[in-house]
Amino acid sequence: MRILVTGATGNVGRIVVERLLEAGATVRALCRNPRQAALPGNIEVVEGDLSRPESLRPALEGVERMHLFPFAATASDVVDLAEEAGVRRVVVMSSGAVTAGRDTGAHLPVERAAEASGMEWTHVRPGEFMLNKLWLWGPSIREERVVRDPFPDLAWHPVHERDIADVATAALLEDGHQGVAYTVNGPEFISRRDQVRAIAEAVGEDIRLEVVTPARAREMYLAQGGFAAANAGFLTGFEEYARDQADRARAGKAAPAPSGPAPTAEKVTGRPARTFGDWVRDHAGDFA
Score class of each variant (00 low, 15 high):
Asp149Ala: 12
Ser140Lys: 04
Arg145His: 13
Ala116His: 09
Met130Tyr: 10
Val110His: 00
Leu108Phe: 11
Val167Tyr: 00
Leu173Asp: 05
Ala116Arg: 13
Ser117Ile: 05
Pro109Ala: 06
Ala113Glu: 00
Pro139Arg: 00
Leu173Tyr: 06
Gly101Arg: 09
Arg125Trp: 07
Pro158Cys: 11
Glu115Ile: 13
Phe129Ala: 11
Gly176Tyr: 04
Met119Gln: 10
Ala100Gly: 15
Asp149Val: 12
Pro152Trp: 00
His123Pro: 02
His107Glu: 08
Val98Lys: 05
Gly105Ser: 09
Gly101Trp: 07
Thr122Val: 09
Asp103Val: 12
Glu120Arg: 14
Pro150His: 14
Pro152His: 04
Thr104Pro: 14
Val167Asp: 00
Leu131Ala: 12
Asp153Asn: 13
Met130Gly: 05
Val147Leu: 02
Ser117Arg: 04
Glu161Trp: 10
Trp137Arg: 00
Pro152Ala: 03
Leu131Lys: 07
Glu111Trp: 03
Thr122Cys: 07
Gly176Leu: 01
Val110Thr: 07
Gly127Phe: 01
Glu174Thr: 06
Ala171Glu: 02
His107Met: 11
Val98Ala: 08
Asp103Pro: 01
Trp156Gln: 09
Thr99Gly: 13
Asp166Ser: 14
Asn132Tyr: 09
Asp103Trp: 04
Gly101Ile: 09
Gly105Ala: 08
Val110Phe: 02
Leu108His: 08
Ala170Arg: 02
Asp153Ala: 14
Thr122Tyr: 02
Val159Gly: 00
Ala100Phe: 15
Gly105Pro: 11
Ala165Asn: 05
Arg102Gln: 15
Leu172Lys: 02
Arg162His: 14
Ala100Met: 15
Met119Ile: 12
His157Met: 07
Val167Leu: 03
Glu120His: 14
Thr122Ile: 07
Gly118Glu: 10
Asp175Ser: 12
Val159Trp: 00
Asn132Glu: 13
His157Asp: 07
Asp163Ser: 05
Ala113Lys: 03
Ile141Val: 12
Met119Trp: 08
Arg148Pro: 05
Glu144Gly: 11
Thr104Lys: 14
Trp137Thr: 03
Ala155Cys: 06
Pro158Met: 08
Val146Pro: 00
Glu143Ala: 14
Ala165Thr: 03
Ser117Ala: 12
Ala155Phe: 02
Ala100Gln: 15
Gly101Lys: 08
Ala116Ser: 13
Ala165Tyr: 01
Pro152Ile: 01
Trp121Met: 06
Val147Ala: 01
Pro158Asn: 09
Leu131Ile: 11
Ala106Thr: 11
Gly118Leu: 12
Leu154Tyr: 07
